[in-house]
Write a protein that binds this DNA or RNA. Sequence first.
DNA 1: ATGGCTCTGTCACAGAGA
Length: 277
Amino acid sequence: MRLATWNVNSVVARLPRLLEWLDLTAPDVVCLQETKVAADAFPSEGVTERGYEVAAHGQGRWNGVAILSRVGLADVQRGFEGQPGFAPEQTGEDPGLFAAPATPVVEARAVGARCGPLQVWSVYVPNGRTPDDPHYVYKLGWLAAYREAIAAAAGADTPFVTCGDFNVAPTDEDVWDPAAFVGSTHVTESERAELTRLRALGLADVMPRPLKYDRPYTYWDYRAGNFHKNLGMRIDLLYANPAAAAAVTDAYVDRAARKGKGPSDHAPVVVDLQLGG
DNA sequence: ATGGCTCTGTCACAGAGA
């Protein structure tokens, strides 16, 4: 089975690149993030023509995740038990004396499904913006709640994988220059500690081959020619439980998908698994 | 990077991304 995860930065804008990449790569299961489209507006025609079923979870302009599968798609879960929302009052804006309490908005950031023998989650972890921003607290709480939600499935004997854009670089080796990230999100101890707690469920970080250069970065800023200078980060991750990790035969970052006209700022991570049956 | 690009929603910019 070939599994991939890809932050496409708008599935509508990326559709020609996505379809071309599906033909070239022939994945069985694809986890998408930042689809930026409501579920009922997901451009599924070209995808279904290629034999994929679609589980989309979206809200329009921001966020949005999906799973494409051509090996079965069952038990679709949009969001997870206990998923926190971001409350507008967390921005610190004065709501006014007579304003009703703002209700937290639960964003479209996680979708799970059973794809043949594999239990899969596609997640788009909140960015956090800056360490002193309410979004940073939201990010840490979101990761902790997600860990609780997947603990049972991660601990099961059946193959389990959670992949997506975690918006955290697990180590200093996963950014092009740690000095450039002092005071930024994605590299703080607290964020990395949340990833460590996730792995403590028994999940292994499936490390992809980079294909070029020495580090398997998955994201490069659009600006300043960062991709061509390989000024990147590894923030798109694939965490597998023992049953899934033992089945991995290869993993790589498909940097070709970051090249050329109209790419996403993220490259897909492609993983091959030899699952019994 | 003190933000150089790209996306969406909407119609000249604002907001977000990491």
